[in-house]
């Protein structure tokens, strides 16, 4: 087990390093003085610019610069955002939370819905359900997610007036307790729904293939032979086995999912990473942009690690093959 964790952690390191390298390169790729990339184009006091120039060793050789860069990041110094008057790290932590509030319900809904549809469709291969899943997946892969969000706003907020169009809470919000939660959830409906459709594209195909595969397994015959009903077999034998590839695919595609969330946020003016990205592009607030990239990479790595653990929990076969080496 320890060995398994170590091998996966070892795998995560090169990804983080690669992202850091890209970030470092960007500092030098940006047009103009490299210090601009570290401070941003937003007006900052000359004293801060001089401080950054010194901290990152921009007056010294490239290797010293690389070392200083890593050193600063390792100590949590992602710079200061003058546009937001906040250290970049604090800003990112708050915004990441807002993004995850959208992502996690959407991921859960997409996987549950995807697997549920697959379970409905699989026993009737070639039926309406079946082609419906393929169509849904194709739709999810082809539709510009931000456009879908715009359509939802036009339809549900502007025309029907059912749901709030933008933001996280109402301006005249109750502010505390239940009222606040209700208001928040009310605002979450449309963005979460948009992201769910985006995620279903990944889930539906895998879930369908996986359910069909499990249904043709021999142990399903055993379960039927002992007199269990098809419905019970579907829930107790097919579902747990079919979930394994679905969970894996969701976890390993976290980067793709994050993209969807960020694009949807910008449509719904949701104060998460995506929205921060847009305003930072407008303000030419480079340290924030680099911070977003770094944070996304870290989240992807964490999601991958988490997936590995969930996989181990779901599939006892992996548990042993790694446990045995350590026993």
């Amino acid at each position: 087990m320890t060995r398994f964790i170590l091998s996966r952690l070892f795998w995560a390191v090169p990804i983080i390093i690669l992202i850091l390298a890209v970030n470092f390169l960007l500092v030098h790729l940006a047009p103009g003085d490299p210090v601009q990339a570290l401070v941003g184009d937003f007006p900052a006091p000359q004293s801060y610019i001089d401080q950054v120039r010194h901290e990152f060793g921009l007056d010294q050789s490239i290797w010293v610069q690389l070392w200083r860069y890593f050193e600063n990041l390792a100590s949590g110094n992602l710079g200061y955002s003058f546009a937001n008057r906040q250290p970049v790290l604090d800003l990112l932590l708050v915004r990441t939370g807002a993004t995850l509030i959208l992502m996690i319900p959407a991921l859960t809904a997409a996987s549950v819905l995807g697997v549920f549809l697959a379970l409905l469709a699989a026993p009737r291969s070639g039926s309406v359900f079946d082609s419906g899943i393929t169509a849904l997946s194709l739709f999810g892969y082809s539709v510009p997610i931000f456009w879908l969000g715009q359509l939802f706003i036009i339809l549900f907020s502007i025309h029907l007036g059912w749901l709030p169009a933008q933001g996280m809470i109402s301006l005249r919000s109750a502010g505390t307790g239940w009222g606040y939660a209700r208001d928040l959830i009310w605002h979450m409906v449309l963005p979460v729904f948009s992201i769910t459709i985006f995620f279903i594209a990944i889930v539906a195909r895998v879930a369908r293939a996986s359910v069909v595969g499990v249904l043709s397994e021999d142990f399903i015959t055993t379960a039927l032979a002992k007199g269990m009903s098809r419905r019970t077999v579907l829930w107790r034998h097919v579902l747990p086995n079919a979930m394994i590839p679905v969970v894996t695919v969701i976890g390993y595609n976290f980067g793709y999912s994050l993209t969807g969330a960020i694009l949807v946020e910008t449509v719904f003016a949701w104060p998460g990473l995506g929205n921060l990205f847009i305003t930072s592009v407008g303000n030419r607030d480079y340290p924030v942009l680099q911070g977003i990239l770094l944070f996304s990479a870290i989240m992807v790595v964490i999601a991958n690690l988490a997936t590995d653990f969930i996989y181990v929990i779901l599939d006892p076969r992996v548990r042993r093959s790694y446990g045995a080496q350590n026993a």
Binding site: D218, F219, T222, A223, P240, N241, D315, R317
Partner: peptide, 8 residues
Amino acid sequence: LTYLNPVM
């Protein structure tokens, strides 16, 4: 082997 559910 194949006739037993691997995760149960």
